[in-house]
Design a protein around this nucleic acid. Sequence first.
DNA 1: CTTGATTAAATGCGCCTGCATGGAATAGTC
DNA 2: GACTATTCCATGCAGGCGCATTTAATCAAG
Lengths: 175, 175
Amino acid sequence: MTGITFDRHMMDQGMKRRPSTEATAAWIRLMRIQSRVLGAVEQDLKKAGFPPLAWYDALLELSRAPGGELRPVELEKQMLIPQYSTSRLIDRLVEEGLAARRECKMDKRGLFVEITEAGRDLQKRMWSAYSAAIERHVGSKLSDADAAKLCSLLDRLGCSCVEATPVPPGAAAPR
Amino acid sequence: MTGITFDRHMMDQGMKRRPSTEATAAWIRLMRIQSRVLGAVEQDLKKAGFPPLAWYDALLELSRAPGGELRPVELEKQMLIPQYSTSRLIDRLVEEGLAARRECKMDKRGLFVEITEAGRDLQKRMWSAYSAAIERHVGSKLSDADAAKLCSLLDRLGCSCVEATPVPPGAAAPR
DNA sequence: CTTGATTAAATGCGCCTGCATGGAATAGTC
DNA sequence: GACTATTCCATGCAGGCGCATTTAATCAAG
C-alpha cells in the first residue's frame, strides 16, 4: 500500500545504512500490519452494513460532548484530521440525518454540530460490530500483557500521540 | 485518521466488553501511530521533491527483478495492492519515463513492465531520503532490541504478512 | 469608525481509490 | 473446432482527499 515492499536488500545498494535492519523491519511491519488490520476491520464493518470508521469516531465524539454538540474545530482537534476533512465529514453526517448544524450565537462565523437520536443510535449499534472486529483481529491474537507491551512500544514512536482527550472517567465536561 | 478516537469510555455504553482494554488501546495506537509516522515520512519525501512511497516500492521491485522487468500481476503480488491500483501506478511511472510497457510474446493478453535508467536512478536517489526518514521517525526512537520486539508483536497480528517475496540474498531469479 | 490581521468554515480543482465492468487472450471441456 | 470459464489488464464512474482559495465574522489597533 505505501512504501513497504523492500527488505534488507535495500541496504546493499551503496547507501549510508543509517537505519538499522531492525528499525527498517519495524517500519515495514508497522505499515503492512496496520494496513492489513485496518482493512480487515473496515471490511467487517462494511459487511455488517455500516458506514466507515471515521463516521463512528465523529459520532462518538459528538455523543460524548456535553449537550451532544461540538464546534467543528473541536471535532477536528479530537479526530486529528484536517479542517476540510471535518467539514465534509459533517456534510455527510448531516445528509444522512445523523447530525445537524446549528447556529452559534456567540461567534457567528462558527457553528455547532449536534448529534441526532438517529446518530446516537447508529453509534451504539456500530460499537457492537466494531468491538467484535477489534477482538477478532487484535484481541484474539495477543495476550493482554503483549497488547500492553505493543502499546508502550508504539507510544514511543508517537512522541505526542496520547494528547487526544482521554477525558478522565468520572470527570465533568471539559472546557 | 480512521476509527480511532475513543478510549475506555466506549466500554461503558452497555456493550459486551469483548475486547480487553489492552487490546483496544493497542488497536488505537496502531492506527494513530502508523498514520502519524507514515505522514511524517511521506512529508519528508515530498519536501525533498520526491514522488510518493508507492512509486519507490514499484521501482524497487522492478529494479530487483531479473532483467528489470515484471508482469503487472507479479508487481501486484509483491506490493499487495489491488489490480487496478497496479495498472494506474504503472501508467504514472510510464508517463514520467521511469518505466516502459513491453509486449509479452508468450502470453499476449499480458505485458512486461521494464524499468528505465531514469527509473533506476530515481529509486537510488529516493532511498537516500527514505532511509533518512526511517531513521528519523523510527530508528532514532527505538533501540534495536525494542524494534525487534515491536516487529515480533506486530507479526503476530499479521498471521501471514511476511509472505511477500523476501528473495533470499544470493538466490537466482525466481520462476 | 476604518483598516488590516486572524480565525471559522466551506468549496473548486485535480488526483487517487474502490467498485464494477469491459475486452482480449488463454485454458479447459466435450 | 466450438463453447464456456478463467486470467490479464484497462477504464468509466462515483466518492474521498489534499491543496489552495474564498467568504464571513471577530479581533486589534490607530
